[in-house]
Design a protein around this nucleic acid. Sequence first.
DNA 1: AACCGCAACAACCGCAAAGGG
DNA 2: TCCCTTTGCGGTTGTTGCGGT
Length: 289
Amino acid sequence: MGCRSCEKPKMNYRKGLWSPEEDQRLRDYILKHGLGCWSAVPAKAGLQRNGKSCRLRWINYLRPGLKRGMFSQEEEDVVINLQAKLGNKWSQIAMHLPGRTDNEVKNYWNSYLKKRVMQAQGVSNPKSPAELTSMSTTEPGMSTMPIHHHHHHVKNSSGSTTTSHDQDANISSNGALSAPAPLQPFDHQAQQQPKNFVFSDWAPPAPESYSVSAHWPASTASSGNVTPSHGGAFGDQMSGSYGALPTHQDHQAGGHGAAAGIAGSGYFDLLNMGDIYGGFSSTNDDLLF
DNA sequence: AACCGCAACAACCGCAAAGGG
DNA sequence: TCCCTTTGCGGTTGTTGCGGT
């Protein structure tokens, strides 16, 4: 793993939220050169970040195949089930959830599912998470847990649910998890548009199936930047989408705005993606196309 | 209208494993 | 075999927006 050729001089790395320009630089670099030595990426890509940060940014937000938005019923069940079996092995759990990152799974668990499971354990007779899970999985409507009382009314729900069930079939190869049950309607279904679009969303369904303004701050959505007219290189689209975001909303744009930009402006040139995929080394690179 | 608390999520930090020299 | 560096992972923190008061 050591990569002495990648050594770089010590420098003051930037921290905090990624700017659109940084995202673009990183993306451009990876798309052009593929994945290699992360520690060399910042210098070569012209970023004042450390390799670790670049890697994280790529894996969690920029890499192709990511699925954003709310977790489906099936995904929830998988997380609960696997968490019960594996513990906090987020990377392993994420492997069973195509398009989801370990960070996303972890966040989802910590911010929502954990409470739900604990609440269920507290309210009813204490059950093991596995028991809870099996109930939830086999009989969603009968679960002791309040199904999908999602708190996604907040920003992430502004765009809605991911409706990406098409990616959920045959999750496990070892039989631990069978094919997902037929889709169950749930409370937040009213919000059907995928929340965020990242690389996985370059392909159809058609952009008109969602509303850009649904997942953008109103001020941004109305700024005219959400639908870049460039239509050219991906980078252009990105910069266009990030564009004139008001200060503190840049943060959201870092992950979400980019997605909106892509989705709202057409689709990325997939020409070279095969090469890119070939270089992926992340544990949960279940890339989907 | 202002303030406060909560929820969600992005990102950082530290540690351990992996691998090359 | 040891040392050093990179990578990967999990825990934690920080920031932001929303809803309630």
